[in-house]
């Protein structure tokens, strides 16, 4: 087996083992949170609301909630895992080895994606208790889940590279990702907004991910789905290049 592949599998295995070893911290909380969203917004409030884009409110928000779980957990996994290896200094195990920087990134990203997709899958299972979601196009569902978790795992890793203390790993999720996700069309269709706010909303990259993912289930979208795919690929390539540059320069990890 190619030695770089062995390096990648070793990091990915370590990251995945970590996720399942501490499942009470990594898998259970998002499932409980999303279940509450389903109960409160879907059942209690949603039953009082009219249909959105031809679907009842529960069916409309379910893909958005699944995507929200994927985004949050992909990001959280890499930022906390990478910062933790910096904090405990076991990042040095990797740095002294001949593992190429690109392989280090892919290994960590694999962990973020496993957690993001696992939580996404579990939340999807929970959603079955509340709504029978149609599957319009499984390819788009998987493509958006894959690309989104890839992009947010990378974003989490960049945060982890710059983080110097534990506070630094929660600033971006709290002040950037959560607001963007809430304003990213999870709970409403942007077509309901005035034109000006629709245009403003389109500057939020998360709206493309939520909308494209929802398209996979419902077959309706506010924005061209291929634009969403293109944006995700662009973000993926850009963030991967930035992460590679940061590791090569040793920012935050070498003196």
């Amino acid at each position: 087996m190619n030695s770089n592949l062995i390096c990648f599998l070793t990091i990915a295995r370590r990251e995945t083992t970590r996720i399942f070893r501490i499942w009470v911290q990594t898998l259970l909380p998002p499932v409980i949170t999303m279940t509450l969203y389903f109960i409160i917004f879907g059942s209690f409030i949603g039953s009082q609301l009219r249909a959105v884009n031809g679907y009842d409110y529960m069916a409309f928000i379910a893909p958005g909630l699944i995507m929200m779980a994927i985004i949050t957990n992909s990001y959280t996994n890499t930022v906390s895992s990478f910062f933790s290896t910096k904090f405990q200094r076991n990042i040095e195990e990797l740095l002294v080895s001949p593992t190429p920087n690109g392989v280090i990134i892919l290994g960590y990203i694999a962990g973020g994606m496993v957690r993001g997709m696992s939580v996404g899958f579990l939340v999807s299972l929970v959603s079955l208790f509340f709504v029978r979601l149609p599957l319009h196009n499984v390819f788009y569902i998987l493509l958006f889940a894959f690309l989104t978790s890839f992009v947010f795992s990378l974003a989490g890793m960049i945060n982890g590279i710059f983080a110097k203390k534990f506070d630094d790993i929660s600033i971006i999720p709290t002040f950037v990702i959560t607001p963007l996700t809430y304003l990213g069309g999870v709970f409403y269709s942007i077509s309901l907004l005035p034109e000006f706010w629709q245009a403003v909303s389109k500057a939020n990259p998360i709206i493309y991910m939520v909308d494209g993912f929802r398209y996979g289930f419902l077959g309706t979208s506010d924005i061209n789905v291929l634009t969403g795919v293109a944006m995700l690929i662009f973000f993926g390539i850009t963030l991967f290049s930035v992460t590679l540059y940061l590791l090569k320069k040793g920012i935050g990890i070498r003196s």
């Binding site: 062995i6 070793t10 295995r13 080895s97």
Partner: peptide, 8 residues
């Protein structure tokens, strides 16, 4: 794991 990082 350390062995894995060296491609073993």
């Amino acid at each position: 794991q350390q062995a894995g990082y060296y491609g073993i």
